[in-house]
Write a protein that binds this DNA or RNA. Structure first.
Length: 564
RNA sequence: CGGGGCGUGGCGCAGUGGUAGCGCACCCGCUUUGGGAGCGGGGGGUCGCAGGUUCGAGUCCUGCCGCCCCGACCA
């Protein structure tokens, strides 16, 4: 490709509203164009990188036994009613009516259609297992897109779905995808780690995220400083501090004028926060749920939601608290009736707590679980934080930021049971197909690659996903000698199979060098009067400071050596 | 959805009531060619939209829209 023909110009300055490195560089380099919040077009260079990423993904999906399919973006809403997600998916489905007034949606993901495909195509265990995948557009009307391609509303995702007859098969299919994912990220030059994750709105039991650790990421990852334990904060657990159970004291009310928080209470009584039982009130589908957790921990709302069968817990508003007859600042589960009670297991690891008296300006001493208040559910709903003990007993947790590039789920029968995706087993009985699903955000992967690989001058894309492999710059092409030789080298490199961007513009050297650096093309070849005087052609890697001069006849060998 | 910020030429910005400007980019010519060149000439803007105040609005007021950041939320 000749620069003079290339559509898309580089920008000297990034648009003022670009904040993250990848957004700035991808825009300046002419890879992407923003159309609306979270909606982008790909220009030729960006499209080439994306195409390369997609081809790597296809290659590895195929190698892992996947079969490529294609499912529609526009779907009847009925399909989502079947799965139960029509009204619960977050963000809400984008919907419209077609000309026959049928309710349609724009798909944010494709579990429903994939399940429908399997349901139609599978009759017997002999038809299983298989894995299908596509690279397809999704639309999610996020409230807050951010960071250029990092978080968008419309995006291309590689989504794969596995279908198996039994648990062992499902696990095998899952592991095959995990292995493929590791290869994909490695080939894209990304050092990605796999962490435990919450499965959120997709459902299923186990899920793992593939995360690139970087400060520009929006996810918080907790990992052990001594073992390979790593989890998204939504999922992360830890070993809670346990205290000896004392002899249970008698409940005693005392005045606490002006005391509204756990901190104030603990301080006033001269005890650690772990000696308090904190009550937090949530509104869940209009019902008040009281959550009790030891004062030294905080509630993880994702864990709470999972306990409440996926219903969205929202902190109760002051009005709701009041309407329920609760006294904020002095509330506790003691003596409360008619509302659901959830207790974090930290409460069972201590005794004789301080807690609210449900009376303005008063608290209680020696409050104990079971004796003084009960729970409908006792479970771990505490948020892990840095410094806490790793759940595997090895080391402490440290917190890092990361970008979630991929996510894999063991879905089990979540969709097949609701949508009736069954097969006949060896004994002639009907069984539910067990599924897994596996996603990679393609554009986000590119953005992450830029976040991970750049310097002050521009991108440093790995060869596998750079739009071109070689940036060929001829300086002073008005000189017919240089122009002629540059054309010959262009021919030679292309004939050898390299993807070459030939900067044939009538521009000063500085402009060409700056563009070469900005675009992050891994190799640069320069021919100029100076290089010719020095004995030929200059060959330089994007990442190295120095160039080497080689004879014209050795360009090919030199480039090859540089790539090896 | 809560908080904050910003909308003036392709990009970056200046312009606090009186003729819409600057840098880069773009077009033409000449010169120049190793890190975003020099000189000369030129084109391009309903100042986000709609109302209002005023003799007069990019500038003041009201409403709306869009975009960005933080938070909430999020396969």
């Amino acid at each position: 490709m000749r620069s003079s023909q290339l559509f898309g110009k580089t920008l000297r300055q990034a648009p003022a509203d670009a904040e993250t490195i990848s957004h700035k560089l991808l825009t300046r380099a002419g890879f992407i164009q923003q159309i609306a919040a979270g909606i982008f077009s790909l220009q030729p260079l960006g499209n080439r990188s994306i195409t390369k990423i997609k081809n790597i993904i296809r290659d590895e999906m195929d190698r892992a036994g996947g079969q490529e399919i294609n499912m529609p973006v526009v779907q009847p809403r009925d399909l989502w009613v079947e799965s139960g997600r029509a009204d619960t998916f977050v963000p809400p489905l984008a919907r419209f009516e077609d000309r026959r007034e049928r309710e349609m949606i724009i798909a944010p993901t494709h579990e429903e259609t994939a399940t429908a495909m399997a349901r139609a195509g599978v009759a017997s265990y002999r038809d299983l297992p298989f894995t299908i995948y596509q690279i397809q557009t999704k639309f999610r009307d996020e409230t807050r897109p951010r960071g250029g391609l990092l978080r968008v509303r419309e995006f291309e995702m590689k989504d794969a779905y596995s279908f198996d007859a039994d648990e062992e098969g499902m696990d095998r299919s899952f592991q095959a995808m995990v292995a493929a994912y590791k290869r994909i990220f490695k080939r894209c030059g990304l050092d990605v780690i796999m962490v435990d994750a919450d499965s959120g709105g997709i459902g299923g039991k186990d899920s793992n995220e593939f995360v690139l650790l970087t400060d520009s990421g929006e996810d918080t990852i907790l990992m052990s400083n001594e073992s390979d334990y790593a989890a998204n904060v939504e999922k992360a657990s830890f070993i809670k501090k346990a205290f000896p159970i004392e002899e249970l004291g008698e409940v005693e009310e005392f005045a606490t004028p002006g005391i509204k928080t756990i901190e104030e209470l603990a301080k006033a009584e001269g005890v650690s926060k772990s000696k308090t039982a904190k009550a937090v009130f949530y509104s869940v589908d209009g019902e008040i749920v009281v959550v009790t957790i030891r004062g030294d921990y905080e509630v993880n709302e994702t864990k709470l939601r999972n306990l409440l069968d996926g219903a969205e817990p929202k902190l109760a508003t002051p009005e709701e608290v009041k309407a329920a007859g609760l006294v904020s600042g002095s509330a506790s589960a003691v003596g409360l009736t008619g509302m659901k009670s959830v207790v974090d297991d930290s409460i069972t690891m201590g005794s004789n707590y301080l807690a609210g008296a449900n009376k303005d300006g008063f608290h209680l001493r020696n409050v104990n679980f079971e004796r003084d208040f009960k729970a409908d559910i006792v479970a771990d709903i505490a948020e892990a934080k840095k410094g806490y003990l790793s759940p595997d007993g090895k080391g402490k947790l440290v917190a890092k930021r990361g970008i979630e590039i991929g996510h894999v789920f063991k879905l089990g029968n979540v969709y097949s049971s609701k949508m009736g995706a069954n097969y006949t087993n060896e004994d002639g009985e009907q069984n539910e197909i067990l599924m897994g699903c596996y996603g990679i955000g393609v554009g986000r992967l590119l953005a992450a690659a830029v976040e991970a690989n750049h310097d002050d001058f521009g991108m440093l894309l790995p060869r596998a996903i750079a739009p071109y492999e070689i940036y060929l710059a001829g300086l002073n092409l008005n000189d017919p000698n240089i122009a002629g030789k540059a054309e010959m080298i262009y021919e030679t490199l292309q004939n050898a199979g390299y993807e070459v961007l030939f900067d044939d513009r009538d521009a000063p050297p500085g402009v060409k060098f700056k563009d070469a650096d900005l675009l992050g093309i891994p190799a640069r070849v320069v021919i100029s009067s100076r290089s010719l005087e020095n004995g030929g052609v200059e060959v330089k890697s994007r990442i190295s400071k120095d160039a080497e001069i080689v004879a014209e006849s050795d360009v090919l060998a030199s480039v090859k050596a540089l790539f090896d």
